[in-house]
Design a protein around this nucleic acid. Sequence first.
DNA 1: CGTACAGATGCAACATAGTTGCATTAATAA
DNA 2: TTATTAATGCAACTATGTTGCATCTGTACG
Lengths: 165, 165
Amino acid sequence: MPSSTRPAAAPRAAATGLIRSVSARVTAPRVAVLAVLLQARRALTHGEIERRAGGIDRVTVYRVLDWLTQSGIAHRISGVDRVWRFTAAAPHRADGHAHFQCNCCGAVICLDQRADRYRMRLPAGYRQEQVELTIHGRCVNCGPAVTKQRAQRRYSTLHRRALSK
Amino acid sequence: MPSSTRPAAAPRAAATGLIRSVSARVTAPRVAVLAVLLQARRALTHGEIERRAGGIDRVTVYRVLDWLTQSGIAHRISGVDRVWRFTAAAPHRADGHAHFQCNCCGAVICLDQRADRYRMRLPAGYRQEQVELTIHGRCVNCGPAVTKQRAQRRYSTLHRRALSK
DNA sequence: CGTACAGATGCAACATAGTTGCATTAATAA
DNA sequence: TTATTAATGCAACTATGTTGCATCTGTACG
């Protein structure tokens, strides 16, 4: 099959289809960014997406990600490290699923379990709208934990460092 | 009681005691910051703490908050708006309790319910260490919701604005 | 196929939250 | 009272994200 030999071709075609499906303009940055998300096995930060998409303006990447999120094509997660991460929003997990974030490397993945079935007792006058449930721990790449305290200390600082490269 | 007429006296005394209880130096910035936290009825951002503590260097406030968190005296929460918020860590809620964050004004409060009883199925090789459970919705001050979509759009932008003043 | 135009892009400048290095100050122990 | 050592304050820096505006381009329409 000569037309499918380039590895990046399939995600780009899927990206184009998704963008067209919300009747929006199919532009190079949108296709590139969405193709990156479709290929990722975990949630990516803006920086990671920018690097993988290659040659697209920083601001445009922000705007494309905003747009993808508002269109429901992508999904935005806030980690403990004050950084947004994005995934292509597969339909089965469009809303309310739980996440995992690694205490060591900061990587975020989506879990299958729903979070929005938890109803909490709130003070009078408060209304529950969404539930955000994130498990923190060690991912498969980071192996078994060091001490609990060391892990704690790494929480905020190391995350950012490890991920920004 | 002449010694308790100044309203700020009691929190400051409590703050001093707490700092001494971990055998650390009792300094003016530490007492001021911790007294602010002890008086707060919700989690405060760095900016709010700095303003309320009055006249303490920005960096020192960051360092005091870091130290309070690492000493277990204070407790750090990451909201959807990429801003740390801090509370004095009451013993009963030292670990694993849920939080509420308002979609409208961004305010964060601690809930009584524990979050760490939730065990999630994780992919092979992943280890659960902490659970973070945050309910998003409308707080009592912000009243009933507008449309769901409008609330969504406000999610990231309005939070920061509303809170930074 | 050519053209018009809404809307997307790219650039520069800005804003905000947090961090680092280092000289000075001050809380505690002796 | 003094010495020691940790904490402070200042300046400069980094990272993440936003805004304004001129230019370009994907799409619809002729």
